[in-house]
Nucleic acid binder design. Structure first.
Lengths: 342, 342
DNA sequence: TTGTACGCGTTATCAT
DNA sequence: ATGATAACGCGTACAA
């Protein structure tokens, strides 16, 4: 016989009363089942089921001084790159018997701050974050106050925390070297805002490759957009299409795949053939890249590994007194597809 | 002067001591700032900053009996459909000054159960969930024990909770009516597993449209796949391509866009022209659909609205004693693109 | 094996 | 504005 809804949740005390045992016995059933006889244990478990008893995690962690949860504050939950990173974290968390909470800052510093504040107050075991602004003192403050924190997808040397990232300068170099190899001599870098480190690093790599090939600086143009979204890519496409074909870049290197998607869409819709008239390189190699209108050449990052490595670092910091902060750097890899292979 | 790392977080008691005031005053500074003079308030705030004081949410919510967080347990965080739903929820949560935690069950009932258990123990204000199995008694049990719960993207009549969804039967009908209108007389439904309600509903709608048009039942074939992913779509594509062209369906209606993407990829790679030799309709109209190799005809669901509506229902249940459970059904809409427009 | 008493950090109440 | 105190639910030493 199942009872109806009972909004007030029962406590160990209620369970004890219902089972006709002492409070301590109930606690033992929960935490050291071996110390209690099978008969009474069953009676207690029965009472718990009847009353709909649910352990109060607040009380537990207040008592214990810590929780069993990790959190990942994502920069953009609608970008598959970050959900893949999150999946890597989830796997690692699961292995360590932790739950993982995902928060989405959606690129807004205010929302990020709110989430961080809540997480710190919750005393989560560790925070993973791809921050809006990695140099924010907020991050240092949190780390200094004692919550293990790892920055994902950005390196911050000399910080009070670990970070894991992929070498974005190298990634940018790979992309543009590829374009140079394919014969392009006028290239646009499409990305922004430049306040985002990933963007500046990839741009920097592009410039390095350009300079190393001895090409004139002014032929690597910057097409700035204000967010790394498909919408921005489309607006960049409009601007690009507006340039007379004699001066127009023959290739675009986009700061991420979403931008590349938007650019591809817009270019196609105004009749610019990809890759014949415009080659495109994206970044991240999200799963959709291969299924794009023209399968997208992209710079692949080890997304799941990034997440896993980050999770291992927080867990180490949380559990290992001898923990030392470290910066882990992964290596990207170019995946050539039709969008650059005329 | 900022102090070094201090793993032990300070409590209100420590702050009171440091500021030379009583514990009650610190509490007042935190909760009723007006009841304390500016001078002492400043002194207390100063002490809090110096000590790196962080409110302990466990103690707070133990005392208050409830938290200020909602949670959404996603079925598949890597599917943009669900992240869009999550964004709708996030907006609503933000408006109600709640934080939102995202959990990913990744389609696994065990992980889902773990997350639900943790959330219930945390006494979150409400749980939103797109369940692996909506008929699971787990959901009823949670609702019955008092945590407001809303099922998203599934309707469950007569349950002890609210649900919001989109009319999948109608969606399936729209998709297949469109194909029939375009002249198709052999169509494949690609989806699975059939244990997923969304899949069976869309299939059911497809069959209704087929029957209504008086077409022979055997010409609407079922191509079962075991997950709603691009990989499954590719494997379905292989099977489809293996059918002699005389008997091969001229169109495929896929249970979601990811499957459609995979199918499109595979079909293209074996030289099957879309839409000439194979038309494709997807489902969800995720943002990538329009940017696909062949822009994808798809059944659009109001994703953000779905999330917002669900969030409003949990919030109502959490705050309004007169709350009545309800089932909200949205209407889908067909968006025709090149993948069906020869 | 079982029962009791205390403390975790916060908030609220009550006098002072 | 302060000080003292009870309560939230749980875990655990310690006593029975």
């Amino acid at each position: 016989m199942v009872s109806a809804r009972q909004p007030l949740s029962a406590s160990v005390k209620d369970v004890a009363a219902a089972a006709g045992v002492s409070l301590g016995t109930v606690s033992n059933v929960l935490n050291r089942p071996d110390r209690v006889t099978a008969a009474t244990r069953e009676r207690v478990e029965r009472a718990m089921a009847d009353l709909g008893f649910v352990r109060n995690e607040s009380a537990r962690s207040l008592r214990a001084g810590r929780t069993r949860t990790l959190a990942y504050v994502m920069l953009d939950a609608s970008n598959p790159f970050f959900t893949d990173v999150a999946q890597g974290i989830e796997r690692a968390a699961e292995g360590a018997e932790m739950s993982l909470f995902l928060c989405n800052s959606d690129g807004r510093a205010t929302r990020e701050a709110t989430h961080l504040e809540h997480l710190e107050q919750q005393r989560v075991q560790g925070i993973l974050i791809t921050p809006v602004e990695p140099d924010s003192s907020l991050l240092d403050a949190i780390a200094r106050r004692g919550t293990p924190l790892v920055v994902v997808d950005r390196i911050r040397k000399g910080g009070e925390f670990c970070s894991v990232a992929v070498d974005d300068v190298l990634g940018g170099r790979l992309a543009v070297e590829h374009l140079i190899d394919r014969g392009h001599r006028r290239v646009a870098f499409v990305g922004g805002p430049l306040s985002i480190g990933q963007v500046t690093d990839r741009y920097e790599g592009a410039r390095q490759a350009w300079a190393a090939a001895g090409l004139p600086e002014e032929d690597l143009t910057l097409l700035a957009v204000d967010s790394l979204t498909a919408a921005s890519g489309r607006s960049a496409g409009e601007r690009l299409a507006g340039i007379p074909s004699g001066r127009r870049p023959t290739a675009a290197f986009c700061a991420n795949d979403l931008v590349a998607f938007g650019l591809l869409q817009q270019a196609t819709s105004v009749g610019l053939r990809v890759p014949d008239q415009l080659s495109i390189v994206g970044y991240d190699d999200i799963d959709f890249a291969a299924a794009a209108a023209v399968p997208l050449t992209s710079v692949r990052q080890p997304r799941q590994e990034l997440g896993r490595a980050a999770a291992e670092l927080v867990l180490d910091e949380a559990g290992n007194p001898a923990h030392r902060h470290q910066q882990v750097m992964f290596t990207p890899e170019l995946v050539a597809r039709a969008s650059t292979l005329g």
